[in-house]
Computed example of a mutant assay.
Amino acid sequence: MKAHVVYATITGNNEDIADIVTEGLEDLGAEVEETEISQTEAEELNDADLIVICPYTYDEGHLPEEGMDFFEDLGDLDLSGKTFGVAGSGDVFYEEFYNLAVDEFSKKLLATGATQGAANVKINLDPDEDDIKTLDKFSNELFQAASK
C-alpha cells in the first residue's frame, strides 16, 4: 500500500504529527511518502492509496497560507477509490476557530470522492503521550480501511 502524508507547519507541531502517522503506517507495512504542503502538487495524491493531510489552523480559522494552492487544486481531483484521514494541531485559545483547517480539508477530500478512513483528529498544540496513542489508533484505522 502506498500512502502520502502531507503536512503544513509553522511551529513544528504538525510535522511531528505527520512523523508519528508516517511511522505508524510504515510499522503496518505501508510505503509512505511524507512531504511539506508547499512542496507538494495535489496531483501527486493520485499515486497513493491512502492520503493523510496534517494542516494547522492559523488565527481565526484560516487555512495555511502556503497550502492554499494545494487546497484549491484538490478540488480538481477525482480521488475515488482512495482512503483519507486528516489530523492537525491547533490552539484551543481560538475557541470556535479551533482546528477548523482539519474540517475544511476533510470536506474538500470528501468532495473528491475519496473515502474517510478514520475520524478527524484535532490536537491542542504539540502532541503529548495521549495524542501519540490517538495518532497510532488513527494510523491503524486508516491502514485497515485502505486495505479493504
Rank of each mutant, 00 (worst) to 15 (best):
K2Y: 13
A3T: 11
H4D: 12
V5E: 08
V6P: 03
V6A: 03
A8P: 06
T9I: 00
I10E: 05
I10M: 00
I10V: 03
G12M: 02
G12D: 03
N13W: 01
N13V: 01
D16H: 07
D16P: 05
I17R: 07
V21S: 00
V21M: 06
L25Q: 00
L28Q: 11
L28V: 09
L28E: 09
G29T: 12
G29E: 10
A30R: 04
E33N: 13
E34Y: 12
T35E: 11
E36I: 10
I37R: 00
Q39D: 15
A42C: 14
A42E: 13
E43H: 14
E43L: 15
E44Q: 15
L45I: 14
L45H: 13
L45T: 14
D47Y: 02
D47C: 09
D47M: 11
L50P: 08
I51H: 07
I51C: 08
I53L: 05
C54R: 09
C54L: 06
P55K: 00
T57K: 06
T57C: 03
Y58G: 08
L63E: 01
P64H: 06
E66S: 07
M68V: 13
D69I: 13
F70H: 09
E72G: 10
E72F: 12
D73M: 13
D73H: 12
L77N: 11
G81E: 05
G81R: 07
K82E: 10
K82T: 04
D91F: 06
D91E: 06
F93A: 09
F93Q: 10
Y94Q: 05
Y94R: 05
E95C: 13
E95A: 12
E95K: 12
F97H: 05
Y98R: 05
L100A: 04
A101S: 03
V102T: 08
S106G: 00
K107V: 10
K108T: 08
L110F: 12
A114T: 05
A114G: 06
A119C: 02
N120S: 14
V121Q: 07
L125G: 01
D126N: 11
D126T: 09
D126K: 06
P127S: 04
D128M: 03
D128A: 07
E129V: 07
D130S: 15
T134P: 12
T134V: 14
L135H: 08
